[in-house]
Design a protein around this nucleic acid. Structure first.
Length: 898
RNA sequence: GGGCGGUUAGCUCAGUUGGUUUAGAGCGUCUCGUUUACACCGAGAGGGUCGUGGGUUCGAAUCCUACACCGCCCACCA
């Protein structure tokens, strides 16, 4: 069989993928004979297109899942997508705008049809992309946060929280995005610094004596003055005692402001006088409540000013109004000064527009009661973070948790299951009168019997459905809900419940730090509240993907590397390999496209190692029908010993989520032990046993590597099946994780062999130091009688690897180039670059001199002898004698040769 | 303002409880090699007073402390 010398992932990967999908190898159902292992995917947005962050996130999950699957766990990776309320609505609105229409033009119902058809058309793009990078999800279970069953769960949770008084509706100050025209939660308004000005405004004051005075207030948002209803000072601030009985007039609006005293005012900041705009600032809102001030909402939904401001400003955008006001106030000499100022302003996390603080009627979840248990489980390490430092971040946020605004004024999402009685509901009252929360539209008001009911127009925050993800995806609360189709796909109630019992809590959640509060914290709260269980025991928080200058990859900055481009060029395996290789636990990943060469080169190395083994087997017509590892000579024990170590290390590292270290360990073994040594050693002596052994090592390596690079390992696995008549599973993931294989060998002979390998290195060094070029060497080896037969056995390949003609075993040497505790070696050489060699020797001699000095220093130190553990002292002593021996040898060599 | 992380070779980073490392790897650089698995390769070389100053210790890249610079998160200073 002809095998190309270049591995071609583009040809291989799609075929392998098809086999996986057809074979449904990744389907996991309850199997009491196996331990369960489960992960729920962080559901990508249906608007999403695979980016490097997804690639990293899902590769990590896939490695864990594939590893456990091979370890004979029942490994379930639950896939799905998120409806992503605002994001999706924005996308579909933009598409509509291209036709010159707005969503208002076509109406809510029609717009929703657009949303669904968009979702049907593009919503699974990212799922297909995940498949191409090898994600081994149980695709048959694919969930969507707006599946009917899932939606019913969301609604049910709302009703339950409402019943328990953990949800309330009220007029509060919230973050408002004037572009998306909806309320946002605190988390959705990202604080960023914005260059701006701090304006010092002069407000006229009339004192009792009718003096004309001014007070100066500082503000970054002058337009809000149109909604001012008070002036606040600190009661202890003596400077403003005179103000307490005076009247402050709000310029332009020309009305009197009340004067309040509050400790919250910092006399040190600005002028010590604060203008109070209760309807447009969170602090002022509190002041307003406390001091019973008037709340004047001055803005429309789109942040233009409304009819509550003087006519000139009505309908003007907030920023334009700011400019106008500054100009007008300047004219009136009412601006004392302005200073450059960086203000932290909230930005909409979906469209980056600066949000406004605005009072509006919204639904909220009381978070403090939910947080209590979620704090405990993390404190008690029932839920653990990797890296552990996130524990503190999590707890800090939980201790200071604020109520969660969950209503959104958009059309894409779960409609709030609440109806208001037109007759008896009073939005300004705190009781629930006239609010009917129900699964289905009620006929009559349960309070007054009126049939004039209207449903709340809003939908729920997307995260209000995502926080149920780990258990809602299993069909919780198992009441056979959903459409027939849902039920067919999600199986019947009993199976669902059993599966939940079996797989839940899930094991590991893999996510980026950005959504720790949005999602992770809330899932823990929701799961504890509704299922009484933690949702997962381990949370892996990986880093952010950045470009090679350390800047976060983002479409708008144009610095993204498209994972699919990499897949196209180098293959999904190369992408996965390099991402894992670079992602040290929790630290950010700096990418440039050449970083993927490491992965590509490695794949090619594997490919060629396999190609070499197969070609040898074919050429020599060796038949391999069972993998019976035999020790023909020491090299077989040596490589097996290293494989055993690699298996142990690799497994441990994966279990501790040190995937980068795990892949490096496997990489190092395969390339530098197996290829560089074992395959080189056996080249000339490719016996049946060696063939057998090399296939065994290859197969074991492939298994170790499979979680990281599934395609190529599957491909070569199938080639092994073809080339050797072995009874192997259909898929590598069903063939089991490699186990250590015991070897019966005295440790002594392994040590001797290691010294032979070491001798090759040393002679290669000497070749360089002596400047021998391609000169063929003759070696003389002096060793004890019983080691002579060992040398006789390994002479052949040894010569080849050091480029020597002969090795003679002798009883005495005229000079010694290399020596260890088993043997000494002399090189018989023709011409050499003696100056170069002398220089190299000097360098080594100096090095040993300083090392000896260092160890002597330690050994002369009485405190060291007294305090250091015995073994450390012993080690230091043997180091010293070893160094001295080597030094003597080098000095002799120099005398003889140079 | 509070909290967290980082600073080790030209670049990207390992270095787990202080002594198994004479501070390592990958990439890049330089030298040699086309001996048919692989030039997407092989062999070798050069390159670091481990951010700075103190301290603990027989012994510090590793622990403590102060400082500097970089990055992130949280926070209502108008």
């Amino acid at each position: 069989m002809e095998i190309s010398s270049r591995y071609n992932p583009k040809e291989t990967e799609p075929k392998i993928l098809q086999r996986w999908l057809k074979g449904s190898v990744y389907h996991a159902k309850k199997d009491p004979s196996k331990e369960p292992f489960s992960i729920v995917i962080p559901p990508p947005n249906i608007t999403g297109i695979l980016h490097m962050g997804h690639a990293l996130n899902n590769t990590i999950q896939d490695v864990l899942i594939r590893y456990r699957r091979m370890q004979n766990y029942q490994a379930l990776w639950m896939p799905g997508t998120d409806h992503a309320g605002i994001a999706t609505q924005n996308v579909v609105e933009r598409a509509l705008a291209k036709e010159g229409k707005t969503k208002e033009d076509i109406g809510r119902e029609e717009f929703q049809k657009h949303l669904w058809s968009w979702r049907d058309k593009y919503g699974s793009t990212i799922i297909d992309q995940l498949k191409t990078i090898g994600a081994s999800c149980d695709w048959g279970r694919l969930r969507f946060t707006m599946d009917q069953a899932y939606s019913q769960t969301v609604g049910g949770v709302f009703l339950e929280l409402f019943k328990q008084d953990l949800i309330y509706r009220g007029n509060y100050i919230i973050n408002w995005c004037p572009r998306c025209k909806t309320a946002l939660s605190d988390e959705e308004a990202a604080h960023k610094e914005v260059d701006g000005w701090l304006y010092y405004l002069r407000y006229p004051v009339k004192t009792k004596k009718n003096e004309k005075k001014f007070i100066i207030v500082a503000t970054t948002r002058p337009e809000t003055m149109l909604g001012d209803t008070a002036i606040a000072i600190n009661p202890k601030d003596k400077r403003y005692d005179w103000l307490k009985n005076a009247k402050v007039i709000l310029p332009i609006v020309d009305k009197e402001l009340s004067i309040i005293q509050d400790e919250a005012v910092d006399p040190e900041f600005g002028t010590g006088v604060v203008k109070v705009t209760p309807a447009h600032d969170p602090v002022d809102f509190q002041l307003g409540k406390k001091h019973n001030l008037e709340f004047i909402n001055i803005m429309n939904e789109d942040a233009t000013l409304n009819k509550n401001v003087p006519e000139t400003f009505q309908g003007i955008d907030r920023f334009e109004a700011r400019a106008m006001l500054v100009e007008l106030l300047t004219k009136k000499k009412l601006i004392e000064k302005k200073e450059p100022y960086n203000l932290g302003a909230g930005h909409c996390y979906r469209c980056n527009t600066i949000v406004e603080s605005r009072i509006s009627l919204q639904w909220f979840v009381k978070m403090k009661p939910l947080a209590q248990e979620a704090i405990k489980v993390v404190q008690q390490d029932k839920v653990k973070f990797y890296p552990n430092r996130w524990k503190k971040v999590y707890l800090n946020w939980m201790f200071n948790i604020q109520d969660w605004c969950i209503s959104r004024q958009i059309w894409w999402g779960h409609r709030i299951p609440v109806w208001y009685c037109q007759n008896c509901y009073n939005p300004n009252s705190n009781d629930k009168k006239g609010i009917i929360a129900a699964k289905k539209a009620p006929k009559k008001c349960s309070d007054c019997g009126s049939d004039k009911l209207t449903q709340d127009k809003d939908v729920l925050d997307t995260w209000f459905s995502s926080w149920l993800w780990p258990f809602a995806t299993f069909g919780w609360p198992f009441d056979g809900r959903g459409t027939k189709d849902d039920r067919r796909r999600t199986k019947n109630k009993k199976i669902q419940e059993e599966e939940f019992e079996y797989f839940y809590p899930t094991n590991t959640l893999v996510t980026a730090s950005e959504i720790l509060f949005f999602w992770v914290a809330r899932m823990i709260m929701a799961s504890l509240k509704f299922t009484g269980k933690i949702p997962f025991s381990d949370v892996i928080i990986h880093g952010t993907v950045r470009d090679d200058e350390g800047i976060k990859m983002s479409k708008s900055l144009g610095n993204v590397i498209d994972p699919l481009e990499i897949t196209d060029k180098y293959g999904a395996d190369a992408l996965r390999f390099s991402l894992i290789f670079l992602a040290a636990s929790g630290s950010d990943v700096y990418l440039s496209s050449d970083k993927f060469l490491t992965g590509r080169n490695f794949l090619n190395k594997i490919w060629n190692a396999a190609r070499f083994i197969f070609s040898q087997i074919q050429n020599k017509k060796i038949k391999i029908d069972k993998l019976d590892y035999k020790l023909e000579d020491e090299s077989d024990a040596w490589i097996l010993n290293q494989l055993n170590k690699t298996i142990i290390d690799c497994s441990g590292l994966i279990e501790n989520y040190r995937l980068d270290e795990a892949i490096k360990t496997a990489y190092d073994f395969f390339w530098h032990s197996f290829c560089d040594w074992y395959l080189e050693i056996i080249k000339d002596n490719f016996s049946k046993t060696k063939a057998n052994n090399s296939v065994f090592i290859l197969l074991s390596s492939l298994k170790l590597l499979h979680p990281f690079i599934p395609f190529i390992s599957e491909k070569i696995f199938s080639l092994i099946k073809q080339n050797c008549s072995l009874d192997l599973a259909d898929f590598i993931s069903e063939s089991g994780w490699p186990l250590e294989k015991k070897i019966n060998l005295e440790p002594q002979s392994l040590a001797v062999f290691t010294k032979i390998v070491d001798s090759v290195d040393k002679i290669r060094d000497l070749r360089g130091d002596l400047g021998l070029g391609q000169q063929k060497l003759s070696l003389q080896v002096k060793t004890e009688a019983k080691l002579k037969e060992v040398w006789a056995r390994h002479k052949g390949w040894f010569c080849r690897l050091v480029n020597a003609e002969t090795i003679t075993l002798v009883d005495s040497l005229e000079r010694v180039f290399y020596q260890n505790k088993y043997w000494a070696i002399n090189l018989k050489i023709g011409s050499a670059d003696l100056a170069k060699f002398s220089h190299a020797l000097d360098k080594k001699i100096n090095n040993f001199n300083s090392l000896i000095k260092k160890t002597e220093g330690k050994l002369k130190n009485k405190k060291f002898i007294k305090n250091a553990p015995k073994n450390v002292v012993e080690k230091e002593k043997s180091k010293k004698s070893d160094f001295s021996h080597q030094l003597t040898r080098l000095k002799n060599l120099k005398e003889i040769i140079v």
